[in-house]
Design a protein around this nucleic acid. Structure first.
Lengths: 152, 152
DNA sequence: CGCTATTCGTTGAAAATGTCAATGGTTAAG
DNA sequence: CTTAACCATTGACATTTTCAACGAATAGCG
């Protein structure tokens, strides 16, 4: 059975196409199917991967400004504004003017925000497990390790 | 020196963030930086990765219809139309009604199209080498192998 | 054979995302 | 204290995505 999540195309004869050897293509395809799967799960919480990412960073150890979120997530500052408007309207995060530089705003999670993150994280875990199911545990670790090296 | 291609953010303190452990995020970031790098190179030929992908498949062994391109590239049929309009206008490919099913059209490369593909391919190779430079040759192979398993 | 349902490429519109310039408030450098 | 730079924000615009609808062609079935 083929769900919209299923990367299978029924075009097995194309697995030898030259394009299949191109990492750019493979990355794009894997990222595309992976994040639509995650988005489908997160829809239950009315979140998308982009919101989840911001929320995750907000819930982390580091105090981050919008500029830093923008750089780390490779999103235009104006997009961060939009995402934060959503999250703040839902009461998941707060913008606090950085006392050491009143131009910047530090993004802090609220208590409900942390709970939302916990639930979202569980959903993402599920989605990830599903997306990476063709890999062994060792392979998943290796994939993460390699991706981390190229992603930063 | 940090070029727009460079994935480095100068936010090393975030490398331990929980988000960094999420494959969804890593994939998205790697795919994003990877394909913008490739797009930057391909701009020289007035191509984007999406055009390159279609052209590559057209130049392959298999006779593919637009529907098949759409499925394999995970793009809406209407997007394939747009890409083909571009490529056909440039004389790189042709649409030929499939004699066995006159609803479908098979995409065939022209001779200039093949030459264009060859040049584009070289550019993509360069971009890939650059993007994957933090990896050893063995690691690059392994990354491709793992991506192929999750991408299909 | 005819009728109906389905598929294909195409068009067009709407939503989401990406990109970029300009602004007010704030800080840094001199 | 003045000038330049930086931050978040806004608004405009381009690109990409998503979806419904259409004519042409095929497939299934009576």
């Amino acid at each position: 059975m083929s769900t919209p999540t299923d990367p299978s195309t029924g075009l097995e004869r194309l697995l030898e196409a030259e394009l299949t050897a191109e990492p750019v293509f493979l990355m794009a395809r894997a990222a595309s199917t992976g994040s639509s799967a995650a988005n489908r799960r997160l829809a239950e919480l009315d979140l998308k991967v982009r919101h989840y990412s911001v929320l995750a960073l907000a819930c982390g150890e580091e105090q981050l400004t919008q500029r830093e979120l923008s750089q780390f997530l490779v999103l235009d500052p104006s997009q961060i504004v939009a995402i934060l408007d959503d999250l703040e309207r839902r009461g998941a995060v707060e913008r606090r003017t950085d006392p050491r530089d009143r131009r910047s705003k530090i993004i802090a999670p609220t208590e409900p925000g942390r709970e939302l993150y916990a639930r979202a994280r569980a959903l993402v875990e599920t989605s990830t497990a599903e997306s990476l199911s063709p890999l062994s545990p060792g392979e998943r670790e290796e994939l993460s390790r390699l991706l981390r090296k190229v992603a930063f």
